[in-house]
Design a protein around this nucleic acid. Structure first.
Lengths: 189, 189
DNA sequence: AGATTAAACTAACAACTGTTAGTTTGGAGA
DNA sequence: TCTCCAAACTAACAGTTGTTAGTTTAATCT
């Protein structure tokens, strides 16, 4: 673990504020107050408000892309790949809940990096959908609408940032297992 | 169908803009431009920016409360109650996708009406959870973590506003059925 | 002790924010 | 034709926004 630089502190504090009020509603003066300094001093460490958002979102988006690349190139069953995706989301989200909030809610304010973000997101969703469709063809997965399946899973996983902080008693493993069970096996007897 | 007043037009246009950029990032001048008028003219019809948000969110929140009240006082099985909840979300969302975006993303900017909104939301979630727990006790529903079940269903349903506009070919009934199947029966063979 | 430097500061900027006051316009009812 | 009124307008406000320039502070290295 490398020590947290002042810049990291600012970015993490910003992520927390963005989670609570959204990017646009957080001012540089809000951020400065939360850091115990004046707004102008922030600029000794960061380039711009926009740049903070970029770092928060793009880093996480690339984590997801890397995780998905490992999953699709593995030799597991499609159901197991889906379980790996659930774990990927639980892991990334549980060590960066605030960042996930920004990724979910403030990506549209990315400006210069919006295009790149959307590229990563589209590729991720395409890979996700392909796993589901292959699983249906292989009769591992019920022949429901594959897009509804992906939508249901992905929106649940994307909202984990809202839920993980409220359930600190549940460790990452138990949560991933519980979620896999509910999402994959259904709920009715 | 009563005709749409100028005030309604403004509120609906605002909801669309709020959906795209979030409440804080939309200025009264943005809204005026979208309406083809000057910002000051908006105030002939509405009280404040804050009041627009209040109308958008509270109306929908009360629709959900009313819908839930009917469901809990019905005599159906708990599984059927869950299916009714799915339909409730599909119905409300499909006739007001923009408003649902504001409800999901901008409720924290409600100021004076925040407390009331949170009261409605908490009651709604308590009712939802009770249906699941009763269903588990009655062996209608698998004995999984009831909160994970609710979280999974509710976040999927809350995100419908993102998805319905992309799938205009799917009518409300088919979507509700497909969702119920995936959420309740699971996806694996 | 003197030099260096990271990191804070004060002061200010031009642009933008929601909103108010007072005025003009154009069409409907008398 | 005259009156009325909804609904637009112009002009302005006080406060807030992200950001820059230049300065001070206090600790570290030589």
């Amino acid at each position: 673990m490398k020590p947290e630089t002042r810049k990291d502190e600012i970015i993490n504090t910003a992520a927390k504020l963005f989670k609570e009020k959204g990017y646009s509603a957080v001012t540089m003066r809000d951020l400065a107050t939360a850091m115990g300094m004046k707004a102008a001093s922030l600029y000794n460490h960061i380039n711009s408000k926009q740049d903070i958002l970029k770092v928060i979102i793009i880093c996480i988006a690339e984590e997801f892309t890397n995780g998905m690349d490992i999953i699709i190139s593995s030799e597991e069953s499609n159901i197991d790949k889906l379980k790996k995706i659930v774990s990927l989301h639980v892991d990334i989200t549980s060590h960066n809940t605030s960042g996930m909030a920004s990724l979910n809610n403030d990506w549209m304010h990315l400006e210069d990096h919006l295009e790149y973000y959307l590229k990563l997101r589209n590729e991720y969703e395409a890979n996700f959908l392909k796993i589901i469709k292959t699983g249906i063809t292989a009769s591992e997965i019920k022949n429901s609408n594959p897009e509804i399946i992906m939508f249901s899973m992905l929106t649940t996983l994307r909202s984990l940032y809202l839920w993980i902080p409220k359930k600190e008693d549940l460790n990452a493993n138990d949560l991933a297992n519980g979620l896999s069970q509910v999402l994959i096996d259904g709920i009715n007897n």
